[in-house]
C-alpha cells in the first residue's frame, strides 16, 4: 500500500516537473519566475516527505510526546530545519529575480525573453 510520504513525494516531483517545463517554454519573464517558484515549492515538498515516517508525530516535546519516548515517537527533524532555511532563501531569490525583471522592463519596455537579444549570436 502506498504511504503518505510516497504520495506527497510523487506530488512534489510532479510539481518540480511542471515548474521545469514552464520555465523552459514560457516567454514572459514574470511567468518564468512563477514557474521557478512552483518548482521551488515542489522541492520543499519532496524534502519534507523524505523526513516523514509513518505513525509518528511532529518533533516537538510536550505532554503528548514525553522526553523518554522521543526516540520512538517523533519524525526526523533535520529535513524540516533544512526546508525552513530553503523557504526563506527562496523568497530572497524570488525578490532578486523580480527586481532584475523590473529593471529589464525599465530598459527594454518588454518582458518578452525572445526580444532580449544582446547576448544572442
Amino acid at each position: 500500500m502506498i504511504s503518505l510520504a510516497q504520495m506527497a513525494m510523487a506530488a512534489g516531483f510532479v510539481l518540480i516537473l511542471i515548474g521545469f517545463y514552464g520555465a523552459l517554454t514560457q516567454r514572459n519573464l514574470l511567468r518564468m519566475i512563477v514557474a521557478f517558484s512552483l518548482a521551488n515549492t515542489g522541492v520543499h515538498i519532496v524534502l519534507v516527505a523524505v523526513g516523514h515516517m509513518r505513525g509518528r508525530t511532529a518533533p516537538i516535546l510536550d505532554a503528548a510526546v514525553p522526553v523518554a519516548d522521543a526516540l520512538t515517537r517523533v519524525i526526523d527533524p533535520v529535513p524540516q530545519a533544512l526546508v525552513l532555511t530553503a523557504i526563506v532563501i527562496g523568497l530572497g531569490v524570488t525578490a532578486l529575480m523580480l527586481a532584475y525583471a523590473l529593471k529589464l522592463h525599465a530598459r527594454k519596455h518588454t518582458l518578452d525573453i525572445a526580444k532580449m537579444t544582446e547576448l544572442k549570436w
Binding site: A8, H44, V48, H52, A58, L84, I87
Partner: peptide, 13 residues
Amino acid sequence: LFLVLAAPDVAMT
C-alpha cells in the same frame, strides 16, 4: 500538506 506530514514549523513558514 506539510501539516499533514507532521511538519508544523515548515507549514507556518
